[in-house]
């Protein structure tokens, strides 16, 4: 039973014709839309490597059936930096050495962007640790990840205040 859906991915509309309802958002991105920046770590919602934003909120793309996402807006790691300028979270990840192998990194960054938007953690390291616990890092760059999210949160808040002023 084919499904035709419209997805906006990183600001670009895609008409997707799905011949198979089993295709997850993750596999759609990686195998059919040539957006392999989003990673598969467990394919079961247990590691967070596949995190993307769906309508602005972080989600595990491995557990979403693509055919159910008609009309959704998806942001992946490829869509985060506008015009070559790094997002503050990306910059903070580099500055704080918040990754080693880099495989979980797109998911970590998208999760951090989602967490900051939720406003749940602020710059409290314990709340950041809790809020980022859905993203496993086997290299265990957690110390840097927490610092990076803290720093990016502050920087974004400051930028926002300056923009408002």
């Amino acid at each position: 039973m084919p499904h035709s859906i419209t997805l906006t991915v990183n600001g670009r509309a895609h008409e997707v014709h799905l011949d198979d309802p089993r295709v997850t958002l993750l596999d759609l991105l990686r195998e059919r839309l040539a957006l392999a920046g989003t990673k598969k770590g467990c394919d079961r919602g247990q590691c967070g490597a596949c995190t993307v934003l769906v309508n602005g909120r972080r989600a595990n793309s491995c557990l979403m059936l693509a055919a159910t996402l008609d009309g959704c807006e998806i942001t992946t790691i490829e869509g985060l930096s506008e015009g070559g300028d790094l997002h503050p979270v990306q910059t903070a990840f580099i500055e704080n050495d918040a990754f080693q192998c880099g495989y979980c990194t797109p998911g970590q960054i998208m999760s951090a962007v989602g967490l900051i938007a939720e406003g749940r953690a602020g710059d409290d390291p314990e709340r950041i640790r809790e809020g980022m616990s859905g993203n496993l890092c086997r290299c265990a760059a957690y110390h840097g990840i927490t610092l990076a999210v803290q720093e990016a949160t502050r920087r974004m808040a400051k930028d926002e205040m300056e923009d408002a002023a």
Binding site: S81, Q90, T91, F93, F99
Partner: peptide, 8 residues
């Protein structure tokens, strides 16, 4: 390789 890794 930092920029490559944070941009996907």
């Amino acid at each position: 390789d930092g920029i490559a890794k944070v941009t996907g």
